[in-house]
Amino acid sequence: MTPPNILELAVCAVTDKDAALVARKRAMKAVSGYPGFVSWRALTACETADMIADLVEWETLEAAQAAGKRVLTDPEFAPYMATIGSVKLMQHFVTEQQV
Rank of each mutant, 00 (worst) to 15 (best):
Q65G: 06
E96R: 14
V56H: 06
A20K: 04
G36P: 12
P75I: 02
H92F: 14
D18W: 12
T73K: 06
Y34L: 08
A82G: 04
V71A: 07
A82F: 00
W58C: 05
G33D: 10
T15F: 08
A53E: 05
E57V: 03
L72P: 09
K88R: 09
V31D: 02
P35M: 02
L72F: 02
S39R: 05
A19M: 01
Q65D: 12
S86L: 02
E47G: 02
A27F: 03
K88E: 08
K88G: 09
A27W: 05
A45S: 02
W58V: 10
M81Q: 15
T73L: 04
E76P: 09
E57P: 02
T44E: 15
K69C: 06
M28G: 15
K88I: 12
T60E: 05
L72G: 05
A30I: 09
E96I: 14
V94S: 15
V87K: 07
G68Y: 03
A67L: 09
A67Q: 08
A82N: 00
T73S: 10
D54F: 13
D18H: 12
E96L: 14
F93C: 03
R41G: 04
V31R: 05
T60M: 11
C46G: 13
G33T: 13
V22C: 03
T73E: 07
V71F: 11
S32R: 11
A23W: 06
A66N: 12
V38Y: 12
W40H: 13
T95D: 04
Y80H: 14
L43F: 11
T83R: 03
G68N: 01
A27Y: 07
P75D: 03
D18Q: 10
Y34I: 12
I52H: 08
I84Q: 00
K29G: 14
V22D: 08
G85W: 04
A45R: 00
S32W: 11
R41T: 10
K69L: 04
L21C: 03
T73G: 02
K88W: 11
A13N: 10
M51Q: 08
G85K: 02
D54E: 13
F37I: 06
T44N: 09
A13K: 04
Y80C: 13
P79S: 04
T73M: 02
T73I: 09
V87R: 13
L43M: 13
L61F: 14
R70C: 06
G68A: 04
M90C: 10
E57F: 10
A66C: 06
D18N: 05
D54R: 10
W58S: 06
V14C: 05
D50G: 09
K25Y: 14
E59C: 00
